[in-house]
Design a protein around this nucleic acid. Structure first.
Length: 273
DNA sequence: CGGCCCCTGACG
DNA sequence: CGTCAGGGGCCG
């Protein structure tokens, strides 16, 4: 499910309650969700670790420990992270459970089982998660028209595909690429090499603006987040184009159109973009 | 680049 | 029954 704004919501909601807690033990129901090392080693080495922070890079979350170890998590399409009383019934697709010293459990649940954990030792070089290949964070001041143009200006790839390239800008997925392109007034199918300087500038501005906007619109308290099972996304009513094929463009009223680009569904306004 | 893979469930 | 879903990796 989650793209950067939703992952950031999870980070903001869970970090305050996780900070300072010790993982007493871990149980892995589905070993395939542990990408590195193996599930047994993962459980053994995570037990006894004290959480000092929850951080985000692109769509990755890292549970950082006092020891310098960190558990990295990617939620992919349908993963979610929940905090529940230890005696609460386990939802069907719960694949990893962490017992905390508060008596609660941190649970990883994922219907499609695409999500993955990695556990990295202190100072261990991260050649496993793919985080080392990520590009700029969307709020990095170095994310500029010049950066995007230098990165993609010579490419014939559709600009939509460029936005989904995690090695250029980290954290943009299918929803927000459409929203960003609508805000910038650029058609998703445009070859990157056809964009002019004004368009690169509008795109560079729209990336942090739209992502920041949707992070704010998704704000939830811990209680609200947990009550919805981590599945409530309050920002969805604010989408201007994503999922709105055939509906009127919020700017000009023309019917929004859907095309497939790079195998991903894309909705845009045929007039404004 | 496109195409297929990983998986389950909702919807037409 | 087929198609699609907000992820990414791999393969030719």
């Amino acid at each position: 499910m989650p793209e950067l704004p939703e992952v950031e919501t999870i980070r903001r909601v869970l970090e305050p309650v996780l900070m300072g807690q010790i993982i007493q033990s871990a149980e892995i129901v589905r070993p395939e969700v542990i990408a590195y090392p193996d599930a047994e080693t993962f459980c053994r080495e995570i037990a006894g670790q004290r959480i000092v922070s929850l951080s985000r890079r692109g769509k990755f979350l890292s549970i950082c420990f006092e020891s310098g170890s960190r558990a990295v998590l990617h939620l992919r399409m349908t993963g979610c992270l929940l905090l529940l009383p230890a005696d609460a019934p386990r939802e069907k697709h719960t694949h990893a459970i962490f017992q905390l010293d508060s008596g609660e459990e941190l649970r990883f649940s994922d219907l499609r089982r695409f999500g993955r954990f990695w556990l990295l030792k202190p100072g261990e070089k991260d050649i496993y998660t793919g985080m080392d290949k990520l590009g700029l964070e969307p709020f990095d001041e170095n994310l500029s028209a010049g950066y995007l143009k230098q990165r993609f200006g010579g490419s014939k790839r559709a600009v939509k595909t460029c936005l989904l390239d995690q090695t250029a800008v980290a954290g943009i997925g299918n929803i927000y690429s459409d929203e960003i392109l609508f805000a910038a007034g650029i058609a998703p199918s445009r070859p990157a090499c056809s964009l002019n300087d004004t368009e690169w500038a509008r795109l560079a501005a729209a990336i942090p603006e739209r992502l920041g906007y949707f992070i704010e619109k998704n704000a939830l308290t811990l209680e609200e987040y947990l009550a919805s099972g981590g599945r409530e996304y309050r920002n969805t009513p604010f989408f201007q184009v994503y999922g709105r094929e055939g509906q009127p463009c919020p700017h000009c009223g023309a019917a929004l159109v859907r095309v497939v680009i790079g195998g991903r569904s894309s909705v845009s306004c045929p007039i404004c973009q």
